[in-house]
């Protein structure tokens, strides 16, 4: 009789532990989800964000159909698109030597990722203690604008990889604003970069 009691108790304990384990695993995220979760510094237009490479501020953006490149020797003729160009003005203060800033990209509400076109604009090499103001030109579909956010990773190794660490700038565009931006899209002259010491 005692043996039977012990067996029942053992079974109940094992079943209880199994239940507890499956309950715990339903509320605790799997290790993979935590290990692969990117470090994202989220911000909006005009507000600076700090990340591994330095401090980034998107000061504004334009939507254009045509971009006149800078410097002219990069491309003598304007770049035109069947979609839209999102021309991003940004400021960057390096926290450490960065030879080349990674490529900006635009991520739309459906998680499509559009990469910046390096043949239309160029940026100065960042230097710690100095602020550079540059532009990035991203070619996208007009449907990418509502809910779009900008992404600046720590390195632009591959457009297939999800970045481990990045600044994410929400452009806060709704459908009506997107329609208006596309309707008003015209020609934009890409600007030369500007650099000055950070006060």
């Amino acid at each position: 009789m005692r043996k039977l009691g012990a067996a029942v108790l053992t079974l109940a304990a094992v079943a209880g532990m199994l239940f507890a384990r499956s309950w715990l695993s339903s509320i605790v995220p799997p290790a993979d989800a935590i290990l692969k979760r990117p470090f994202l510094a989220r911000t909006t237009v005009g507000k600076p964000a700090e990340y591994l490479l330095g401090r980034v501020t998107v000061t504004g953006f334009h939507v254009a159909k045509t971009v006149i490149p800078w410097p002219p020797k990069l491309r003598p003729t304007p770049a035109e698109t069947a979609g839209v160009f999102v021309v991003v003005d940004y400021e960057f203060v390096a926290a450490k030597p960065v030879r080349v800033l990674p490529d900006w990209s635009l991520v739309d509400a459906a998680e499509n990722r559009y990469l910046a076109d390096r043949t239309v604009t160029a940026c100065e090499q960042p230097q710690p203690g100095f602020m550079i103001a540059c532009q990035a030109v991203i070619e996208a579909t007009p449907s990418a604008l509502p809910g779009a956010r900008l992404l600046l990773p720590t390195h632009s190794n591959s457009n297939l990889d999800t970045p481990e660490e990045a600044v994410v700038v929400d452009l806060e565009i709704d459908q009506a604003q997107a329609d208006q931006l596309v309707a008003e899209a015209g020609q934009v002259q890409a600007k030369a970069p500007m650099i000055k010491a950070q006060a």
Binding site: K96, P97, E124, Q125, P126, Q127, G129, F130, A192, A197
Partner: peptide
Amino acid sequence: GVEYSPGAAQVTADGSFELGIG
């Protein structure tokens, strides 16, 4: 501990800058 590289944060005397200083 902060490192500064050649070819960065330099402009021509008239204020414009050139790419490919290095």
